[in-house]
Every structure is written in structure tokens, then in C-alpha cells.
Amino acid sequence: MIEIRNLTKIYTVGDQRILALDNVSLTVKKGEIFGIIGLSGAGKSTLIRCVNMLERPTHGTIFVDGQEITALSEEELRVARQKIGMIFQHFNLLSSRTVFNNIMFPLEIARVPKKEARQRVQSLLEMVGLTDKADVYPAQLSGGQKQRVGIARALANRPSLLLSDEATSALDPQTTRSILELLRDINRRLGLTILLITHDMNVIKEVCDRVAVIDNSRIVEIGDVLEVFSNPQTPTARSFIGTVINREIPVELLHRPNGDSGGKTTRLVRVSFIGASAGEPIISSMIRQYDIEANILYGNIDRVKDTPFGNLALELIGSPDMIDSGLTYLRNRGLEIEVLRSD
């Protein structure tokens, strides 16, 4: 759906050249929700704005739906943009127009016949649940309602791609959740591809299929959300995940003095599990089968999109052979094991 190749953006401010994007390549598949996460100033905003050419790339090419967007003329670009919806952190609704006419706006630009346009606005209002607010001005709406109008407006021309520029960053957690639900619903029902940028890992966790972590103008990590959550490769990714899921084992556990182990060995392991296995009593069957004592020191279970995801810190006490077999047993069941401390 989107193919970004070797995208570089350099801003020139006076004599200074600021590298905002450094040779970024990225592919977003049709129908997926792709999230880009990064701290402010990392370049994510520049990246998403290059996709509809609100920013002109310094180097590199971008294809959207097979069309090389970076090579279009002004006129062609305008037509192409009609098929790329965009929503914004601060909503950017026109205060001079009612909700109805705000959603009408992109249809006027695309010169959709009035009658058809009105019908479309009606059904969009229904979709975002704001039929009763049609004749109200944006100033009277709450943040969440404004973003719903923004979403309806972005969908008016039936785009194949929706760009979301920090769309939930100005909203409270509850409203954020309802907006994210709406986005996911739209993604499923319309098969709409969504590219979103955020600094909030919760957004990635709730709705994204894949994620790219951007740091210092480069993409440092990219993959399925579950994969990145369960096995982050970079410190940046790890710290983002840490904001929503506590993977870190408290230091005092790592340095717990060993008790009298009586010829047995003690190992501290982290067990990460994803998906169905979280529902099965794997740990307890391991304990029974291999005669291991297990001490659960720490644990949590979370959901990433709809998949359960969690990790446990276990202190395993038993004969070394049995512990090794036990861990193999766990690995074979698809759990990920990391030995944190062994005697």
C-alpha cells in the first residue's frame, strides 16, 4: 500500500541543516494498521507528512497504492490526496462550518455532486455516532467528538489510506480508547489501511498490527507488534514497551540471597508467553513433571491487540538436569525463556 524507499529529509534553517529523516525505508501492507512510534523530534511527524507530500522529501521515493507520489505534478498530487485521508492531533476543523459542512468540505474539494455528497455525509455521521450534532459548530464539541468529525471528514472521499498524525495525543485515556476502537472498526469494516504515528505505546498495543520504532531520524526496529513486544531488540523499543508493560524484573529480586538449597540449584528465569499458551497450565505441568519447585516472584499479563501477552519471573529450584529439561519443555510449548541468574 505504501512503499517508502530511502527517504531522507533535510531541513535548512538559515545556515543549519537539520537531518529529520535519514534514509528511511518502509513498507505498509494493504489493510493493516501500521504504527510508527518515536519520541518528539525523532522524525515521525516528518515521515507521515511525506506520505501525502505535506513535506517534500529531500531524497527518496514514496509509492502509495502503486502510484509514485513523489513524482506527481501539482494537479495529479491534488487528485491523489483526495484518496489519502488524514486526521490530526488538534483536529483542524473549520470553526466557520457546522459539523455537517465540515464533513462536506472534502467533498466540495473533490466536486462530488451536492445530492450524493449530502447522503454520504449523513451516513458518515451515523458511522461516527454524531447524527445529532450535524448542525452544531465545532466549538461546542468535546475533544473526542471533534476527532470523530475529523475521522468522518477524512473518510468522506472514500480513501484507501488513512494517515493519523498523533490523533489521540490531545485526548484523555478513555476518549483515546473509544477513538482507537473506532479506527479499528473502520479498518475492519472498510479494509482501510491506516498509518499512524504516536508517542504513546498504548496506541500501538491497542490497535496496530505492525510497528516501526523511530529514533534519531532512523528506523531502528520494525516488526509485528507482538514480536516487538515480546522480544524488543533495541533500548529504544525496550523503553517504549516499558511504558506500558513492565518487563523489568525488580533489581532486588536479581540479587536475592540464596537460601539453603541442599544440593539443589536455583535459577531465576523470565518466561514470556504470547497468545493461546497464556491460557494453558503449562507452568504447573512442568512443575509436576520435572519435580521442580517454582517460586513466582513477579508477573503480569497484558493484551496486545487481542492477544494475551505476559511475562513471569520464576525462581526454579531443583536438580540442574531437571531444570534444564523443564526449560526445554517450556520452550517447546512456545514460551520464551531467559535465564536471569543461575547459581
Binding site: 501525502n52 505535506l54 498530487l77 491534488r78 487528485v79 491523489a80 490526496r81 483526495q82 489519502i84 488524514m86 490530526f88 488538534h90 483542524n92 476543523l93 473549520l94 468540505f105 472534502p106 474539494i109 473533490a110 471528514r153 472521499n157 494517515l163
Partner: peptide, 15 residues
């Protein structure tokens, strides 16, 4: 006028 409004219009393909 906030620049965001102009950008929103441009993103919809406004001339």
C-alpha cells in the same frame, strides 16, 4: 488563521 487548517485542506487535495 491556524496553519493546521490550511494543512488539513491541502491534505484533502484543495487548490
Amino acid at each position: 488563521i491556524e496553519w493546521g487548517l490550511v494543512e488539513a485542506a491541502l491534505s484533502m487535495g484543495a487548490s
